[in-house]
Structure formats: C-alpha cells, structure tokens
C-alpha cells in the first residue's frame, strides 16, 4: 500500500488513538505510518461491540424478569461469556451455570462471591444487584 493511500478515517473505535501501519513511499521504500483508522476496520469493531451490547441488554431483561441471577448480566456487561467467566474463576462451566440461577445465586457463599467479585472487577455489593440502566 502506498503511503498516500493509508486510510485516515478518524474511526470512533480508536478513541483518538492512532495505529502504526506499514506502507511504501514514492520510491517504493517501506516506512511506518500512523493511521487514524480505516472505516472497514471501524465497522467490524463496531459490529462486535454492538453484539456485546445486545447480549448485555438481553441479559439485563432476563434478570429483571427473574429468569437469571444478576451474575448473568454482569458476565455479559464485562464482555465475557460462560466459557470466559468459568475460566477466569477456575470453575467448571456447569458450576457457573448453576450460579446463574437466581435461587442458587442467593445462597452463594461469601468466598465464591468474593471470587466472582475479583474475576469481574466489581464489588460484592454491585455484583448482587442490577445497575441503573445507563442512557446509551
């Protein structure tokens, strides 16, 4: 790619940052060029972020309706899924799955709550409830 063609699309997913790209100058010599992003990349990242948000929104609803424990929402809100959360906890997936049930979650031991709090980076208090829904 020619340096002149390196996209500078100021994509929102870079949040004002720039990435280094390799491109050729007028003599065909390679150089490092900073780029404010390519729309193609930005769209793909946004698609992934939207999907994560959609999962968190659905989870929020499921918790409100009492089908799932608050843990279910926090898992998605922290961009995890069952696999990632179980791995971060060092637990089998079936155990984490159990903890997603409201009844089981209510009786969770302080030790396990503390571990979830660590894995998700949230205080035990906030882990037990749904946050106020933020305006998007």
């Amino acid at each position: 790619m020619d340096i002149k063609n390196v996209p500078q699309d100021h994509i929102s997913t870079y949040a004002e940052n720039k990435k280094a790209l390799y491109a050729t100058d007028e003599n065909g010599k390679y150089a490092v060029v900073t780029s404010s992003g390519w729309d193609v990349e930005g769209e793909a990242t946004k698609q992934a972020l939207t999907e994560l948000q959609r999962q968190a929104d659905n989870a929020y609803q499921a918790v409100l309706e009492g089908q799932q424990s608050p843990l279910y929402y926090h898992m998605y809100a922290q961009r995890m899924d069952l696999i990632v959360l179980a791995q971060s906890m060092g637990l089998f997936q079936w155990r984490v799955k159990r903890h997603l049930k409201p009844k089981v979650f209510k009786k969770l031991s302080p030790t396990l709550l503390a571990r979830y709090s660590e894995a998700l980076g949230l205080s035990v208090e906030s882990l037990k409830q749904l946050p106020e829904l933020k305006e998007k």
């Binding site: 390799y22 793909a44 992934a48």
Partner: peptide, 30 residues
C-alpha cells in the same frame, strides 16, 4: 455477518500493520 466481521477484525484490528501482517512481511523482505 458476525463471522465475516470477525475475519476483518483478526486481519486488521488486532494490530497487524495492515493486511494481516502481509505488509510487515513485505517490509521485512525489502
């Protein structure tokens, strides 16, 4: 759509210098 978007992300977003490291490698060959 997610699958196809995922390909772009692995090729461009994760810091590849463009085109899934192909430009870095071209620079190395030069």
């Amino acid at each position: 759509k997610l699958f196809l978007g995922h390909i772009i992300r692995m090729q461009e977003e994760i810091g590849t210098g463009g085109a899934g490291f192909r430009y870095i490698y071209a620079s190395f060959l030069q």
